[in-house]
């Protein structure tokens, strides 16, 4: 099996039915949450998926997890098509692909103890039927996730933990299944800045010790810059630029990427720079603009941008961006 087709996403689309615009209109409208996304993830690679709120990042992660059915497109894992699976096949796959959710305050059941939470995946999958073996695995996952010593936390309830600790519990519950891919949906955006670094360092470490591939979703490129191998920038349901971390950070080509990079806060007033602040917010994904979807907010748009949808332009072997200005 080649390294390339570990996780492969081709032309993935997810349209949500948004109902009819008016009571008597015929056609119902769709939210183009994810609109033709393709990329591949290599073994133990970290991809940062960046974009504004509402651009479809969470939807994409739910599609990859099989928690939403794609409208179109294919997802394949280790060469096998996993786009549509029955419950049993899906369950088997869950051991390989796990997810960390955005909000550590909401993603733990308040009535379960930490031990029950981390044990749950093992129970559900019937892994390690022997109690002592299970305890062993639970402890190992907890310590790997930085909850040391595990005994202190085992019988606590989520509300007795801080935000950072809760996020570690969520990570431990994902690790206990020993997945090969970890989808992290904004794992730190709800946390205090002083503990964000802990969680990011933890993920960076896991990727080395456990060879886990990570898709790190965030709206703040600054928070992942240092450990991602590649960066994919998403705008209105589509990836508009993808490249290695250095390519994207140092030579961003898409005007949207440039804007995103320019607004990352820099903790040094001497380095204040001209920020490219896009006005307005991500447009409504129900009425995707014609032509290039970014043109209404693009500071450098030209007239052709209104009509033609830019193709993905290859800038180097690893770097692609979709912008008409790049067409030579």
């Amino acid at each position: 099996m080649s390294k390339e087709n570990f996780l492969e996403v081709r032309g993935l689309k997810k349209y949500f039915d948004a109902g009819r615009p008016a009571l008597f209109s015929r056609e119902s409208r769709f939210v183009h949450a994810v609109d033709d996304v393709s990329f591949n993830l290599r073994r133990s690679e970290v991809i940062a998926l960046v974009g504004e709120s509402g651009c479809g990042k969470s939807t994409l992660s739910l599609l990859l997890m099989g928690l939403e059915e794609p409208t179109e497109g294919t997802i394949s894992f280790e060469g096998r098509d996993i786009t549509h699976l029955n419950d049993k096949e899906r369950k088997g796959l869950r051991r390989k692909i796990q997810m960390i959710f955005q909000d550590p305050y909401e993603s733990l059941n308040p009535t379960q103890t930490i031990e029950e939470i981390i044990n749950e995946p093992l129970l559900v999958h019937g892994i390690a039927p022997d109690k002592s073996e299970r305890d062993e695995r639970v402890k190992k996952a907890m310590e790997d996730a930085g909850l040391k010593p595990a005994e202190v936390y085992l019988y606590r309830f989520p509300h007795e933990l801080s935000g950072g600790q809760r996020q570690r519990v969520v990570i431990a519950a994902a690790l206990v299944l020993e997945p090969e891919i970890l989808l992290a949906d904004e794992p730190v955006s709800m946390l205090d800045v002083s503990i964000r670094a802990e969680i990011i360092n933890l993920l960076a470490e896991l990727r080395i010790t456990r060879q886990i591939a990570v898709i790190f979703i965030t709206h703040d490129l600054g928070s992942v810059g240092f450990f991602a191998d590649r960066v994919a920038v998403m705008y209105l349901g589509r990836i508009v630029e993808i490249g290695t971390m250095l390519e994207v950070l140092e030579k961003p080509q898409h005007p949207y990427t440039k804007a995103l990079l320019s607004v990352i806060p820099v903790p040094n007033p001497r380095l204040r720079r001209e920020r490219i602040i896009l006005q307005g917010e991500t447009p409504n994904p129900i009425d995707v603009p014609s032509g290039c979807r970014f043109h209404p907010r693009c500071p450098v748009a030209i007239s052709t941008c209104k009509h033609s949808d830019p193709p993905s332009i290859t800038l180097s072997k690893t770097h692609q961006a979709s912008c008409l200005l790049l067409v030579k």
Binding site: M65, L67, K91, R94, R95, Q98, M99, F101, Q102, D103, E106, S107, L108, N109, E120, P121, V124, H125, V170, A173, A174, L177
Partner: peptide, 11 residues
């Protein structure tokens, strides 16, 4: 969210 998480875990 924790119900979604349980589903993601395979429950």
């Amino acid at each position: 969210k924790f119900v979604l998480r349980a589903r993601a875990v395979g429950a």
